[in-house]
């Protein structure tokens, strides 16, 4: 399998606090990887390092054989290849649903507006939001916002999509609609990296599950092994606590 991203000895500190310690990990094309772990274990930071929203303190982020931290490739070009979906949606509040999906294509990919609109409409259709193209973000519900955010990321036609707890800020009844969209994307063969607390989803959809604790990767295996027969005691304790709730 072709490796899209490979992380070597990644380390990240905020001041004196070491959030990520010597992370080694890779994502192949078409893989769906779920990252689980308790709050503060560094999973979001890891994801943000992949999109350079946080700059790693040391280590390498290798994208198709090229270390992007060496600045040979511009951050903007690389970021356009790594779509990101945020916990808080972060839709552009001054733009309507359609323009949210168009602006990146026009400004970054330099597409013409008509082509960009067509692409945007296709992806909005895919997430079931094409009816709402002229609504502003504050006029739609949380689940709808997150679906638009997914369409916005897809409109850039990225190589991989990073999800940072996409359902954690949603009302329970809206979680389903977002997970359904993500499930369909996974089936379509998109490379996805998902930080999540939805264990059932991870078990169902992921090809691989990564368990993180205190800034290190404790477990990295297929869902069946991680959930039913974990190698590490810490994974067992975490899953037991989660599944009890």
């Amino acid at each position: 399998m072709e490796k899209i991203i490979k992380i070597n000895h990644l380390q990240k500190s905020f001041g004196a606090i070491e959030v990520l310690k010597d992370i080694n990990f890779s994502v192949s094309k078409g893989e769906v990887v779920c990252i689980i772990g308790s709050s503060g274990s560094g999973k979001s930071t890891l994801l943000r390092c992949l999109n350079l929203l946080e700059i790693p303190s040391s280590g390498e982020v290798v994208y198709h054989g090229q270390n992007i931290l060496e600045q040979k490739m511009s951050n903007a070009v690389y970021r356009a290849k790594m779509g990101m979906v945020f916990q808080q949606f972060n839709l552009f509040n001054n733009l309507n649903v359609l323009d949210n999906c168009v602006i990146g294509q026009v400004k970054v990919l330099k597409k013409n507006t008509a082509a960009a609109k067509k692409t945007a409409l296709d992806y909005l259709e895919l997430v079931g939001m094409s009816q709402f193209i002229n609504a502003k973000p504050h006029q739609i519900s949380g689940g709808q916002k997150q679906r638009v955010a997914i369409a916005r990321a897809l409109s850039m036609e990225p190589e991989a999509l990073l999800f940072d707890e996409p359902t954690s800020a949603l009302d329970p009844e809206m979680v389903g609609e977002v997970l359904k969209v993500m499930k369909n994307l996974a089936k379509s063969g998109l490379t996805m990296l998902i930080v999540t607390h939805e264990m059932a989803f991870a078990r169902d959809v992921a090809n691989r599950v990564v368990f993180m604790d205190s800034g290190v990767i404790v477990e990295d295996d297929v869902p069946d092994v991680v959930f039913n027969n974990p190698n590490n005691e810490r994974t067992r304790i975490f899953l037991k606590r989660i599944l009890e709730n």
Partner: peptide, 29 residues
Amino acid sequence: DKGQFEASHAIGMTHAQTMISIVLPQAIR
């Protein structure tokens, strides 16, 4: 909101593009 900057940077927009298309219209409003 910091998320507006992050979302804009995450799709590859530069600081100038972020300011002109996303942040200033909201700030001026």
